[in-house]
Structure formats: structure tokens, C-alpha cells
Amino acid sequence: MTDATLHVFRGDKTGGDLRTYQVPVTEGMVVLDAIHYIQQHEDSTLACRWNCKAAKCGSCSAEVNGKPRLMCKTRLDQFMGSPVTVRPLAAFPLIKDLVTDVSWNYRVNQEIPPFTPARDDTGPWRMYPEDVDRMFEFRRCIECFLCQDVCHVLREHDGTSRYYGPRFMVRIAGLEMHPKDTVSRAHLLRGRGGIGFCNITKCCEEVCPEEIHITDNAIIPLKERVADEYFDPWRALLRAFRGRREPRGT
């Protein structure tokens, strides 16, 4: 049994540094296992958020060797004996050690108008596969916020007051493309949602553990819908004559 060297961030909002731990490696071990080993055998005060250990709850997000990852899905053997550095998500305020305050995301979520069917359309609804298959991908999101962490608008440009971030572009896309939803969120996207701040550099796609095509399938289609509303005089003319109709396609 060999040992892995882990440099783990220890500290709180007042400051901190990396501390080094030696952890015996077993077959199939992931970074979260190593963190648990440290908690159990070396330092029980190490703070870390986790829940399912199956890459489905999105709790154990951290920056492993500088890349946002789920600790429970990151095997130690991929680093081939090199030291592994584990830091908290840098885009969010630090609470302690590897735990950050991600509550901003939940406040953003509340700003998004929820699914709103027509008042007189009470169901039961018959849903066709072609109408909902786009949304299955968006429903895979586990809210790990790795995409929010890697988004350079939020991370490098203090964008939390200007841009909702990739996670909520995915949520809005799922609502906007729903065949029974009647609310347009184009105004929200262009304003408070700040979709114009996204310059589609696709870092969010690179870190998504659910492999959601965040940019291609959510953000860009939303940008095109905003262009429909605000940058397309031809469509504006059509709307003026034919009246606004929601949802699209009915």
C-alpha cells in the first residue's frame, strides 16, 4: 500500500494555508475517501461538505489540482503518485476549510419565475417525446455549482451582481423550452440574468460532472431567444402584426 500526499486548504474567511497529509491509498480510492481518512485519523476538525458519495448530490465540490471537480468522483490513481492539492471553490465566500457559502445560488434561483402553465390548462397533460427530450439533459443537473465556480464572469469579474451563471441558464432553458410553460424570461435574461456577460468560452461544459452541454444546448439557444426579442427587427414586426404568442409553437 502506497501513500498519497495531499495538500489540503485549512482556514476560514480571515485566511488560511495548505497543510500536507499522507494518506494510504487503497484500490478505487477517491479524493473524498482521502479527506475522510484525514478526518478520521489525522485531524477531525477538517471541515468538508458531502452527502451521497455517488456523484449525485453535488455536495463535495472542490478544486482538485486547480480544477473544479466532485471529490467523490475524482480517483486518486489518476494523479499517478503526484501530490494532490484540494482547495474550496474560489467563486464563493469561504466558511471553513473546504466548505463555502453557496447560498447566493439559492437566492438567484428564487428570482427565476417558476414553471407557469396556462390558467385554464389544468391537465392531465399528454406529453410527446419530441417536446420534452431536450429537457431531460437539463434535468440531470445536480447543482454542484462547479460550473458557477469555473465561470470567469463570476470568478474573475465579481459577476454575481450582473450574471446568474451557467447553472441558472440551464434552469431557465429547461423552463423556457417547456411546451406548457407560458412565461417569457427573455427580459430577465437580458437584464438581471445578464446572459450578455457570458462570452461562451465553454469552461462550464468542461467541468460539468453530468456532461451537460451547458453552452451549446442551454446558453446559446437562450441567447438566440434574446436575439429574437431584442435584436431582430423582422421578428419584432411580425410580433407587432400577429401579437405575442406563448408558448412558442402553439
Binding site: E130, E176, P179, D216, E224, G249
Partner: peptide, 21 residues
């Protein structure tokens, strides 16, 4: 991407739009 939007991506309800399928 704009072509993809134009040919069908801009619809919400393929089953109920004219020519949706």
C-alpha cells in the same frame, strides 16, 4: 447555432406547432 435555432430550436412545442414534427 443560429441555423439550428431557425429550423426548430426556437419552438417549445413541436407536437402542437404547424409543421412542428
Amino acid at each position: 447555432h443560429a441555423f439550428r435555432h431557425m429550423v426548430g430550436g426556437n419552438l417549445d412545442c413541436y407536437s402542437c406547432a404547424r409543421g412542428g414534427r
